[in-house]
Each structure stands twice: as C-alpha cells, then as structure tokens.
C-alpha cells in the first residue's frame, strides 16, 4: 500500500488477527473432515474424542474395501484428464482464430458460447438421458462423460484462452509473418510458448471443474463410468455410522483438487468471470 497513514498499534495487531481468525473459521470444516478421517468410526462421534484421539490410518487403508474408492477415482482421473485435453484441442485453435483474426461476428460467437454455459442442465435432463440411453447407446460410458464434461467446459476454455491470446502483441505475430512463419509455425513457435502459462492454468481450472462436476456425472452414469461425485452422493446419509471412513474417502476425493486449486487461484478470477474482472 502506498498510503502512509498513521496506524495505531492496536489496528496493526487487531486486523491481521481478525483476518487469521476468519481464515481459520473458513478452513475449519475441511480441517475437521481431515481430522475425522483419522478417527475410527466409533471415535468419530464421541465428544471426548473431538480433538484428542489415537489417530489411525485404517479408514484410508480400507477405502477400496469400503467404497471401491480407486475405481471411482480412476474414472474421475480418466474423464477429467481427457475432457480437459479435448476441450483444449478444440478450444486452442478456436481461441487463436478469434484473437488474431477477429471478424465482426467474433464477439457474438463468444457471447453465444458463453450463453450455452448458462442453460440450466436440468432443463435437458430427459432428452439427454433418452439420447444417451436409447439413441447413441453411450449411457454410463467414459466416452459420454468425457464428451459432456468437455462440452460444458468448452465455453470457459475458449473464453480464457481468448483473453490470454489477446494479450500477446499483434506485432510479434506480424514480425513472425515477415520472418516466414506459417500458420502452424505461428502457433508452435510463438503462440504456445508465449501463452504457455495461460494454457496451463486454463487446463488446471478445467480439470478442477470437471472433477467437481456433480450433475451430469451423477445423472448419466450408473457404475462403469461413475466418478467420485457419484460415489459420495451415493453415500450421502450414513446416519452417523461411518463418519470416519466417510471423512477419509471425502478427503481423498477433494484433497488433490484443493492443492491444485491453490496453484491457480490467480487465474481462477479471470476464468470464472470470463475476463470481466481484472
């Protein structure tokens, strides 16, 4: 802060303390979940063991027996990775063309793409179920989940990449043209190296969104392609019996993503607001 205002000793200590308190309150549910994941199911519901207990790893060790965790986790990884990959493969050329050869329609196309993101998924629940089950016969397949995840995130991918590409000076691309670059050369030699950071954070964010998606992954799968969202949703109400093991599987489901999220919190803003807040 550039302002050199007189700050009292009180506010020098009070405000940071308050900030810490708020942050700890917000993190507490996650902390409590992690804590519970190291308790036995019996300890997890006892008042005397809220903070003091003998930690155990059995919940993690038994995750596959209790919940078949790894199968769902594998599905989550496969579908999220490939959906992200395909969204990039389709999105990069599109955003490139829009950023460097904008036409009068470019803005409208971008806005329209965004508007598809705003359609409530539930509105097309039955048609999607019908189409995937009876017409294309892809219900509960990895292909379907990948396809759907790719499509619902495509607008955000194009949008984010567009904002990154737009920041590359046009002069550099033109210098490249003068120096003899082909279209493919432009992408390979200039665009990708210069926008690499942006592409990576777009990919990370897309991956997070795919991983956390909880409507289509639940509604369009049963067993074969079910992801972690489906797993947790299926064990929604254990009536207090399995808090320990449920916490463990929940921690395993969100842990990697929270850590990934820490790495792309800056890009999150432009990704979520479609570049409208800078």
């Amino acid at each position: 802060m550039a302002i050199v205002a007189k700050t009292s000793r009180f506010s020098k200590i009070a405000w940071p303390t308050l900030a810490w308190v708020v942050a700890l309150i917000f993190f507490f549910p996650i902390f409590y979940m992690i804590l519970t994941s190291f308790k036995t199911d019996a300890d997890a519901v006892k008042a005397e063991h809220v903070f003091f207990f003998t930690p155990t790893l059995e919940n993690y060790a038994n995750m596959s027996d209790n919940y078949d965790y790894w199968r769902f986790a594998t599905n989550s990884v496969i579908t999220s990775v490939f959906a992200t990959l395909f969204a990039l493969i389709v999105g990069v050329p599109c955003a490139y063309a829009m950023a460097f050869n904008p036409s009068r329609g470019t803005k409208d196309i971008l806005m329209w793409m965004l508007s598809t993101k705003m359609l409530p998924a539930a509105a097309v629940l039955y048609p999607m179920t019908f189409l995937t089950k009876n017409v294309f016969n892809v219900f509960d397949t990895h292909f379907l989940v990948i396809f759907v995840l790719c499509l619902i995130n495509l607008p955000i991918v194009v949008w984010m990449l567009f904002t990154y590409f737009k920041d590359i000076p046009k002069d550099i691309i033109e210098a490249g043209k003068m120096d003899g670059l082909t279209t493919w050369g432009e992408v390979k030699e200039i665009l990708i190296p210069l926008a690499w950071g942006g592409i990576v954070s777009t990919a990370l964010l897309t991956f997070i969104f795919c991983w956390n998606e909880a409507y289509w992954t639940v509604r369009l799968t049963t067993i074969d392609a079910a992801t972690l969202s489906k797993l947790i949703e299926g064990n929604r109400a254990p009536e207090g019996l399995f808090f320990g093991r449920l916490s463990a599987v929940s921690t395993a489901a969100v842990g990697p993503i929270i850590v990934l999220g820490w790495f792309c919190q800056k890009q999150l803003v432009s990704g979520l607001t479609f570049g409208a807040v800078k």
Binding site: P169, D171, E174, A175, M178, D179, G180, L181, I190, L194
Partner: peptide
C-alpha cells in the same frame, strides 16, 4: 509477407520475448 523479401522493424520492436537475442536474430 515472408516471400516479398522485405524486413520490418516495428514500433514495439516485436521481439520474441521467449527467445534469446541470438535466437531472435537467427529466427528469420
């Protein structure tokens, strides 16, 4: 543009920021 045999120097210099000076000059 590349086949016209012309060189251009831009106002913003338009150097390739991810390449060293040597690579910039070598690029064409």
């Amino acid at each position: 543009p590349a086949k016209r045999g012309l060189s251009m120097v831009f106002q913003s210099y338009a150097l390739y920021p991810h390449m060293t000076v040597r690579k910039n000059i070598a690029f064409p």
